[in-house]
Simulated assay, not measured.
Amino acid sequence: MSIAPSITIQETSGITFLNVDNTFAIAQISLYGGHVLSYIPKSDNIERLWLSPHAHMSGEKPIRGGIPICWPWFSDDHGREKGELPAHGFLRSQVWQLKSSEDTDKGTVVLLTPTFSRADGFEYDCEVILEIIVGESLTVNLSTRNTGIVPFTFNTAFHSYFEVPDINHIELRGLQGSYRDKTDSFSIKDTPEPYRFNQETDRIHDHAAKEISLFNKDKKLTQIHSSGHDSVVVWNPWQSAASISDMDAFGFKQMICVETAITSGKEVLPDECHILTQVIS
Rank of each mutant, 00 (worst) to 15 (best):
A4Q: 01
S6G: 05
T8N: 11
Q10N: 13
Q10K: 15
S13I: 07
T23A: 10
I26D: 10
Q28M: 13
I29K: 08
L31C: 06
Y32T: 03
G33V: 00
S38T: 15
I40Y: 02
P41T: 04
D44W: 04
N45K: 05
N45A: 04
I46N: 12
R48C: 12
H54I: 06
A55G: 06
H56T: 10
H56A: 13
E60L: 10
E60C: 10
E60D: 02
I63R: 10
G65C: 03
G66W: 04
I67A: 12
W73K: 04
S75A: 15
D77V: 11
K82T: 10
G83Q: 00
S93W: 02
Q97D: 09
T113I: 14
P114Q: 12
S117R: 09
A119R: 05
A119M: 03
G121S: 06
F122Y: 14
F122H: 14
E123Y: 15
D125V: 05
D125Q: 11
I129K: 12
E131L: 09
E131S: 12
E136N: 06
T139G: 13
T139K: 15
N141D: 02
I149C: 11
F154Q: 03
T156H: 09
F158R: 03
P165N: 01
D166N: 15
I170V: 13
I170Q: 01
E171C: 03
S187N: 15
I188K: 14
Y195H: 07
Y195F: 12
E200V: 12
I204L: 09
I204K: 00
A208L: 00
A209P: 07
E211P: 06
S213I: 04
F215K: 01
K219R: 10
L221H: 00
L221V: 05
I224E: 00
V233Q: 08
S243C: 01
I244W: 03
D248K: 04
F250A: 13
G251I: 09
Q254W: 02
M255D: 11
C257S: 02
E259T: 11
T260M: 05
A261R: 06
S264D: 13
V268S: 12
D271R: 15
E272G: 10
E272S: 11
C273E: 13
L276P: 13
L276E: 07
V279C: 03
S281P: 00
